[in-house]
Simulated scan of single mutants.
Amino acid sequence: MDEAERKERGFAARRSVLGDAHVDRAIANTTDFTAEFQDLITRYAWGEIWTRPGIDHTTRRLMVMSMMIALNREEEFIMHVRAAVTHGVARDTIKELILQAAIYCGVPAANSAFHAASRLFKEMDAAAGSI
């Protein structure tokens, strides 16, 4: 696959996983300083890894959320929880993921993840109620 195809597949995967609004915001917020990074993650994280056939998107989502808990990357964790719920991952599945993380990543990491996910769910529920 050439770089143009990798980038095209990357944008398709990125939009599929995170949604058009998120990707459009990321593109709109790209600066000269961040352009090469955006290109890198689109081609490689999304075009090379997320498009591989060995693991389905739901499993990849759960893996990424687990890694974000372990690395204490709340912003990325929230982004992936939002995308997961939007694409049909049950909140109970996310709860189980966080409980599992409590054992392998530590209780403080899981506590932070529960707080972040709870805030996000409250925000999502409020937005759904206003429609």
Score class of each variant (00 low, 15 high):
E8K: 15
R9T: 05
R9H: 01
G10T: 06
G10L: 09
F11I: 14
F11N: 06
A12F: 03
A12W: 06
R14V: 06
R14I: 01
R14M: 07
R15P: 02
S16G: 12
S16E: 07
V17E: 07
L18N: 06
G19K: 03
G19E: 05
G19H: 06
G19P: 03
D20Y: 04
R25L: 10
A26D: 05
A26W: 00
I27H: 09
A28S: 09
A28D: 07
A28F: 02
N29V: 00
N29K: 11
D32P: 10
F33Q: 10
T34D: 02
T34L: 01
A35W: 03
Q38M: 12
Q38Y: 07
D39M: 08
D39K: 14
L40V: 07
L40R: 09
I41P: 01
I41R: 00
I41K: 04
R43A: 15
R43I: 09
W46G: 04
W46Q: 05
G47E: 04
E48W: 07
E48M: 03
I49S: 09
W50R: 03
T51Q: 02
P53Y: 02
G54H: 11
G54K: 08
G54A: 09
G54V: 05
G54L: 08
I55N: 10
D56S: 01
D56I: 05
D56T: 02
H57Y: 11
H57A: 11
H57L: 15
T58A: 13
T59N: 09
T59Y: 05
T59W: 05
R60C: 02
R61N: 11
L62T: 07
L62P: 07
L62Q: 12
M63E: 10
M65V: 11
S66F: 06
S66Q: 12
M67G: 14
M67E: 09
M68T: 13
I69M: 10
A70S: 13
A70V: 00
A70G: 15
L71Y: 09
L71V: 01
N72A: 15
N72P: 01
E74P: 06
E74S: 13
E74W: 05
E75H: 14
E75F: 08
F77G: 09
M79E: 14
M79H: 12
H80S: 03
H80T: 01
H80A: 05
V81L: 04
R82Y: 01
A83F: 05
A83V: 00
A83Y: 02
A84S: 15
V85I: 15
H87C: 02
G88T: 05
G88R: 11
V89A: 11
V89P: 07
R91I: 09
R91K: 08
D92Q: 13
I94A: 03
K95S: 01
K95R: 10
K95N: 04
K95T: 04
E96H: 07
L97E: 03
I98K: 08
I98T: 13
L99T: 07
L99Y: 10
L99G: 00
A101G: 11
A101I: 03
A101F: 01
A102K: 06
I103R: 00
Y104T: 13
C105I: 01
C105P: 05
P108W: 10
A109R: 15
A109K: 14
A109M: 12
A110K: 02
A110F: 00
A110V: 01
A110G: 15
N111G: 09
S112K: 13
S112M: 13
S112C: 10
S112R: 10
A113N: 05
H115Q: 12
H115E: 12
A116N: 02
S118E: 12
L120W: 04
F121T: 10
